[in-house]
Write a protein that binds this DNA or RNA. Structure first.
Lengths: 239, 239
DNA sequence: CAACAGAAACATGTCATACAGGTTTTTGAG
DNA sequence: CTCAAAAACCTGTATGACATGTTTCTGTTG
């Protein structure tokens, strides 16, 4: 066992932070991949010379950020990339009014203009089909707003997935939580059935452009879609 | 005290998750803003009818995500928007090889093409000065790569700040950690001093375009900058 | 009455221990 | 060799204790 830098530690960033660092460092230095098991709490307790309380709080923190998976009886494992933490940060920003819904939509627009273009260029046939399927389901379920919304969200996430860049997927998915809280507002603002169908048509246009492999057209439709969505939100008074 | 939905809880997502939800719910329902104090652990213990262990792990988890601030003796407070959690997620993705540096750069390029345009349109004079200052410092300290890097990072974060959309700042800042780990590689690939100075010149061009308030020119220079950076990384063998 | 120092009350940080389940490994009977 | 029971190991939760940091109260003093 090494001294784990105890005396030269300046003030005291807290034992838990130290433990968190030790665990992430372990993942790094051992070159662990998603699914690989981590040391048990008892092992960490011995290695760091701290109580299980501290080690547990560290594991739990990493679990909250979805960097590791925990479950009773099993050792913790390295987690697959997940959106949980980012979602919570964004939602925290919204609920504490540090960011506005409109600002989130501006970022979404920026990102999805790109994902849609990439999707048009790189989508597999299966991905193109999945995107088209979501658009179709939106039309078919247009009686139930919540169902439309879920298909809408799935639509955008499917496009992000088809960009073949998981970082885009991560961000787009992180925004889905915010979308779930504001989507209905925009839907209600589209007073007439005609407006609502026009909005669904917009999704189909995007899906078609992706199927055709035309990135410029796809981006154009996506821009239009977002401009209308933001306008709907503004009309509804979402600052 | 209410029953806090104990029996109808289905399987059992764990008491800690429940406590986390209760705390975030508290923030939401009380409309708390950054800096406002949360209930003490003892109060939460009573309210949720669980042990302090559970409540503490919940608080600690939220603290790890930087949704709340904790410090000894004081009650926890609602935290200002912070990049901590997002950084960790991105770095986790990189170290576990679930995402590549190049993919991160592609996202950065997408986002910063937008932040730079917004900055050109919305920057205050002070922000324009700060951006130009960072570029100048890059040139002045070009002997010390690490110093250049820090000014480079500050440059990009300053542009994001000048976009006046904190969500962009959040994302750009979250990527800074990755940049710190790969920047030097790109720098070394620019073998000659001339190449290095050309790269610094690129930053000055961006700063000038922002100062002039020309979003198209600014975006053009930014695109060029990223294309060269990515090329440098690819040349260095970063997949 | 006001100011201030010290005590008390309160809060978090860490530790030790205990026990209830869940999971993996070992063992032993067939 | 197979397979089921037992043992060993692991995480989830609860309780109590104490150190240390922060706020609040209080009584004394100027």
């Amino acid at each position: 066992m090494q001294e784990h830098t105890d005396p030269p530690d300046g003030p005291s960033p807290g034992l838990v932070s130290t433990a968190i660092q030790a665990i992430t460092q372990h993942i790094r230095s051992e070159g662990l991949a998603a699914g690989d098991p981590l040391p048990s709490e008892a092992a960490m307790t011995r290695q760091l010379n701290v109580s299980r309380t501290v080690v547990r709080e560290a594991f739990r923190s990493l679990s909250a950020m979805r960097l590791i998976d925990m479950s009773a009886g099993r050792r913790a494992t390295v987690a697959k990339l997940d959106t949980g933490a980012m979602s919570m940060v964004i939602e925290h920003g919204i609920t504490t009014q540090q960011i506005s819904v409109q600002q989130v939509y501006d970022v979404r627009r920026t990102i999805e203009m790109r994902t849609v273009a990439l999707a048009a260029l790189r989508r597999t046939n299966a991905e193109a089909a999945a995107i088209a399927q979501s658009a179709r389901l939106m039309r078919e379920s247009c009686k139930s707003p919540e169902t439309v919304m879920e298909h809408d969200i799935a639509f955008h996430e499917a496009i992000a997935a088809a960009s073949h860049n998981p970082v885009f997927s991560l961000i787009v998915t992180a925004f889905s939580g915010v979308t779930r809280r504001t989507w209905v507002i925009g839907w209600r603002t589209r007073s007439s059935d005609e407006d609502q169908l026009k909005m669904i048509k917009g999704h189909e246009d995007i899906a078609d452009a992706i199927l055709k492999g035309d990135p410029r057209l796809a981006a154009e439709h996506m821009a239009e879609h977002f401009d209308k969505s933001v306008k709907a939100l503004i009309d509804a008074g979402i600052a």
